[in-house]
């Protein structure tokens, strides 16, 4: 009865499996890279000792997750779909700020950041977003540069 329910989502597409693989891979990478730094002994630990232990532990936790979801008879949660659109544009908006701040100054960086962020949302009304860009640039210039004295130039 309940055995059949468990097969609704395949093992490889289950959330636990994906998480487990991710943990195991990251843990393995840290442990493997860490081993190169020199493990030393418990008495005189090298820079690699702690990373190998913790990385190994993370790897085990990942394997544990994989094992648990492989053995379970309960229905597995599917891996959720990533919403690539907001993910891409919001990351892009941050990166754009980083790329432009030193080269072109705060005004360009703020505008680029707000406009790209605006592209991320589905409810965006562009007229509003342009106003937000202008207001936020003015606000940043006033508060961050003038008032707080953060070392940023408005123009460059």
């Amino acid at each position: 009865m309940s055995e059949d329910v468990g097969l609704r989502v395949g093992l490889f597409r289950s959330k636990d499996f994906v998480t487990g693989v991710l943990f195991a891979a990251v843990g393995f990478w840290f442990a493997f890279t860490g081993a190169d730094y020199g493990i030393g002994s418990a008495r005189r630990m090298g820079p690699g000792y702690f990373p190998v232990v913790i990385g190994g532990a993370l790897c085990l936790v990942g394997l544990g997750l994989i094992l648990r979801t492989s053995l379970t008879r309960l229905p597995r949660d599917p891996t959720p779909r990533l919403h690539v659109w907001p993910l891409f544009f919001l990351t892009a908006s941050v990166v754009a700020f980083g790329l432009t701040i030193n080269r072109f100054g705060l005004a360009v960086a703020c505008s680029a950041c707000v406009l790209l962020a605006g592209a991320a949302g589905s409810a965006t009304r562009w007229k509003e977003t342009v106003i937000v860009a202008l207001v936020m640039t003015a606000f940043s210039a006033l508060v961050f540069v003038e008032f707080l004295g953060l070392p940023m130039r408005l123009w460059r």
């Binding site: 919001l90 908006s93 941050v94 700020f97 980083g98 701040i101 960086a109 703020c110 950041c113 707000v114 962020a117 605006g118 949302g121 409810a123 965006t124 009304r125 509003e128 977003t129 937000v132 860009a133 936020m136 606000f139 940043s140 961050f144 953060l150 940023m152």
Partner: peptide, 14 residues
């Protein structure tokens, strides 16, 4: 929220 979040982004970046 469509007005708030771009402002939040500026705060995060700065």
């Amino acid at each position: 929220y469509r007005i708030l979040y771009p402002a939040i982004m500026i705060f995060l970046c700065v």
